[in-house]
Simulated assay, not measured.
Amino acid sequence: MPGTTPVIIGSERSEVGLPAGMEILVSGGSALDAVEAAMRLCEDNTADHYVGTGGLPNARGEVELDASLMIGSSRAFAAVAGLQGYPNPISIARAVLERLPQHSLLVGAGAALFAAECGFPTADLLTPEAEKLWRMSLLEATDESVEGEDTTAQAGDLAYRHAALELVRRLAPHDGPWGTINILALDAHGELCVGVSTSGYPWKYPGRVGDSAVPGAGNYCDIRAGGSACTGRGELSMRGGTARRVVDLLGAGVDPEAACRAALADAALLPDDFRAELRVLALTPDGRHGGAATLRGATYAVMTPDSAEPELHERSVL
């Protein structure tokens, strides 16, 4: 609706990009432009090892990126997943939205082919720091190595590979900020947009795609109710349809914070031997916002036209 007060919110570490997004919003720009611009700065932040350039690699040492966008007024959705060699998957997701509207999700080699056709620049996504973290946590954690000879695997080779897989499953994220980045924006014209970008779980099985590229799981947006996005254990939010559940609750009149908490409570009922933290954010068409997490101390960032810098808000705790 014309005359809406712009708002932009984001998950932890989105503060790198939110000011650029708000600058677009206060100048009358679109929520889509704001989300893309803000997220690109997050993806280009090489100190962040969970999105874009510098993201931690999969179990084979390859950085695979996922990103998605959803527009509230049309519920148009576009995503790329398992993308290698392109530093800004959020922009490629936007290109899918605008140049390939007959599709919503491109993966792997197909996503890379489309990016090349669109002229997006390539880059080496595995930075020296990220590679060092990977080697220290995975390769150097075993005393023996498997030789690369072209021979039939022996019992010892198979035992090593099984042990390596068990190691990958046990590894927790390194100390410091981590996780997918969500950015949600409401523009002066009343449009809502939600964007998500991630390099996924570190040391993941090659080809693993989480909730960030799945509508209704890690990302959902409906102008009639609001937008929502998730970070953390993506397999849980895929099974629980967590982002869509939040939006449905918003549509039923539930407060954003309470809706986020209720969606997490529902996901908590799912059996999961690999349970890890899950967090969720919500933004409504009238600018109300809220967030929830399964652990204390979680925050999210907010900017309005009156903000000098991103303001941190505590998330409700399940």
Rank of each mutant, 00 (worst) to 15 (best):
N45S: 15
T46N: 10
T46V: 15
A47I: 08
A47L: 13
H49K: 13
H49C: 11
H49W: 06
Y50T: 15
Y50E: 09
Y50S: 15
V51Y: 00
T53E: 14
G55S: 15
L56E: 04
P57A: 08
P57L: 06
P57C: 05
P57T: 03
N58F: 00
A59N: 07
G61E: 02
V63K: 06
L65H: 04
L65I: 11
D66Y: 03
D66G: 09
S68I: 06
S68L: 07
L69Y: 00
M70S: 03
S73Q: 13
S74I: 08
A76S: 15
A76C: 11
A76K: 14
A76R: 15
A76F: 04
A78Q: 02
A79I: 04
A79W: 00
V80N: 03
L83A: 10
Q84M: 13
G85F: 00
G85A: 05
G85S: 06
Y86F: 15
Y86T: 09
Y86I: 10
P87S: 11
P87H: 05
N88D: 10
I92N: 06
R94P: 05
R94W: 02
R94K: 14
R94H: 10
A95Y: 07
A95W: 06
A95I: 08
V96E: 02
V96W: 01
V96Y: 00
V96P: 01
E98K: 12
E98R: 13
L100K: 13
P101V: 06
Q102N: 09
H103K: 14
S104M: 12
L105R: 14
L105D: 07
L105E: 09
L106F: 08
G108D: 06
A109Q: 13
A109F: 09
G110C: 04
A111P: 01
A111L: 05
A111I: 05
A112L: 01
F114P: 06
F114Q: 10
A115Q: 00
A116W: 06
E117Q: 15
C118L: 14
G119S: 07
F120V: 10
A123R: 11
A123E: 11
L125T: 08
L125D: 07
L126S: 07
L126D: 01
L126R: 01
T127D: 01
T127E: 01
P128N: 02
P128M: 02
P128K: 02
P128Q: 05
K132H: 12
L133S: 09
L133I: 15
